[in-house]
Write a protein that binds this DNA or RNA. Sequence first.
DNA 1: TCCTAAGCGAGACGGTACGTCTTGTCTTCCA
DNA 2: TGGAAGACAAGACGTACCGTCTCGCTTAGGA
Lengths: 210, 210, 210, 210
Amino acid sequence: MVQPKEDRRIQRTRQSLSTALLKLIEERGYDSLTVNDITEQANIGRATFYLHYEDKEQLLLESLEDMFSQLGDSIAPTAKVTGEHNSITATRLVFQHFADHHRLYRVLLTEKGAVMVFTRLLKILSQVAEQDVILKDVEQPKTGIPTHLVAHYVTGAILGLIVWWLNNDRPYSPEQMAVIYGHLMDPGATKVLGIAGAQLPDLSDVLSKR
Amino acid sequence: MVQPKEDRRIQRTRQSLSTALLKLIEERGYDSLTVNDITEQANIGRATFYLHYEDKEQLLLESLEDMFSQLGDSIAPTAKVTGEHNSITATRLVFQHFADHHRLYRVLLTEKGAVMVFTRLLKILSQVAEQDVILKDVEQPKTGIPTHLVAHYVTGAILGLIVWWLNNDRPYSPEQMAVIYGHLMDPGATKVLGIAGAQLPDLSDVLSKR
Amino acid sequence: MVQPKEDRRIQRTRQSLSTALLKLIEERGYDSLTVNDITEQANIGRATFYLHYEDKEQLLLESLEDMFSQLGDSIAPTAKVTGEHNSITATRLVFQHFADHHRLYRVLLTEKGAVMVFTRLLKILSQVAEQDVILKDVEQPKTGIPTHLVAHYVTGAILGLIVWWLNNDRPYSPEQMAVIYGHLMDPGATKVLGIAGAQLPDLSDVLSKR
Amino acid sequence: MVQPKEDRRIQRTRQSLSTALLKLIEERGYDSLTVNDITEQANIGRATFYLHYEDKEQLLLESLEDMFSQLGDSIAPTAKVTGEHNSITATRLVFQHFADHHRLYRVLLTEKGAVMVFTRLLKILSQVAEQDVILKDVEQPKTGIPTHLVAHYVTGAILGLIVWWLNNDRPYSPEQMAVIYGHLMDPGATKVLGIAGAQLPDLSDVLSKR
DNA sequence: TCCTAAGCGAGACGGTACGTCTTGTCTTCCA
DNA sequence: TGGAAGACAAGACGTACCGTCTCGCTTAGGA
């Protein structure tokens, strides 16, 4: 069942490239990087790069995929819990994720970044959000608004917050952001979905702990 | 008072380039375009391009700037009206704007697009939104949440909706989208800002007219 | 019969261009000069240049034409004199000419120069030389060697000397060069042409005056 | 002892470029050629050209260098022979060389040529000639004329003949040209150098075999 | 223990786009 | 009307990067 050693060697090469890319993105943004920059940073021959990836975009996607699925995995369980604070827990985990990789995301989500990051995030997060919406929708009467639409609304709002948060050096903790988000979002989307909002901590209490 | 003819000639050249770029973006996306593609489409010498713009990114920004300011101008007046439906009017105008240029934005806001479009839109729209938020904030007690933050929240949510809307061939009219947005947003953000929401048309009434 | 003022103005423009070109050649060679360099030096609009000349080569040729014909004019009369030292006088005048414009020719006849200068000089000087050869040939029995050939031989030899002379900062006076040339050339070519050489000053006398 | 294959590949590329250049020069002259013309003719990528040469001038020089050294090698041994006809043998070899590449040189030495060809030829040939002059000078009393000067004289004369010869479709054989040159040159330069001329075939005998 | 196939570094190469430079043409305006 | 100013098309320049390729080196896994 063990992987042959050859494969481990390959994994090391791919890992080096991935690490090198993420490091360079933090330093110099994504667009201006060349394949040569990446392979040099990784101490890998340029030709070798093309044995593993078609282009730097594919490398980025595969590199992010890890992080994304990691994010998805951490949120997924919360969706099944119908307890009171599940929603706030999920959003807190989202903010936590972006905080964990803040240097990287700050670059990717602003001017030196890559188009597809926004798009991908919107798609991936909205799928997660949709699961959530559907779950609640099943329990409660529908409102006629497509769940996809609500999911994009919710996700867009979160990403808007995250961009602001990262660009302003995260003046609040992930928990605080989650509470703020809850207060902004809950009454509206919740009402539309016809369900009662979760119990949220008092807003001014939370903000004062800044 | 008339512009010398030289200047008009220059304007015509710049206009040709701008038009050519936007047309090509709709057809082939932004990233893969070359300066040569653009100048060829515009029937302009490639060297001439560099007399006017540093690179295609600058051309795109200047081209979009027109549209953005056009959008800003159409929304601005509504911000000063404190009548009931001002907010819904403003958001309707936003959706209308993206509908007017839907082919272009659909490309720019998805995978073949340009990085900075998201960023710019977020910045520009959130500035407009902020004016709105501030206006309301002045009238009512503050909540301690930075207006920048709320503005990004609002803007992100709208952009989320717009991405969904464009990717799904705009199944609702701009008016309908504005009402949906109002229902999703109003109770939450409005409550946080401590003011009463505007009177919104009934949601099911609006959706049934699809 | 006087030239209208306009024409004099034209002449001034052409003169400026010519002067500017020759000045710049001395400083920077010919090949690397641009039309812009020339018109800038001459304080003339670049477009104006093209009203008068097709390209910088034509300007150079016309500029050199003056000097060449000036050289031709000074030599011509000596060809008709059959007195003893006519030959040495003619060659002295040739060396004198190159000394007069030594900075210019040094550039043109070496690495930064223009192809056609060598060719043109060879053609023009050999035509003059041919006149000389023919004159003598008429007086004396032919040898069967084409006069063109002899003329090119003679001219090539002189140009070889001139290149050496200019490249070595003219260590001898034009007169000395003419005598040297006479001693190197006279017995050979003269014998072939079947005529007696002119009386030449003693070589060591001449060289010692260096 | 064999060259690694890489190096042979490089040599093939360089050879292709060299061959292509010389071919194109014969057809279209030198000045008007572009790097693209050359690489296209050689079936080489334009960028690859710049891996090997800085510009087309350097390529020309390296290409000519081969031929020049080939010429030098063929003449060199004759300089050491003090037998009677060594001089005529050397000059015959020079004329032979230009005959071998007459199409190329005809273009290079006339209006469509390259500046540096004259200069280089003058320099290279005069160095060879100088060896010859020095050799003879050593055996005989000096005359006070710098050997450089004599070498340039001799070389210029030969180049003059060659230009005429090539421009007139080589009406004489290299041997005939060598004899003509010998008759024109020998008495003069030889006398100056203070040595007896070699035995030359009778001029009219040689010319009649045309 | 050797040997043999795979991963890899090195780098030549064709190709494409870049941004710059120069040319020659044109148009407008000024003296 | 001659010239200055300068926009423009055309096209070559030299550079940068891409993706492909061929070549040896090394290095493990199976003989």
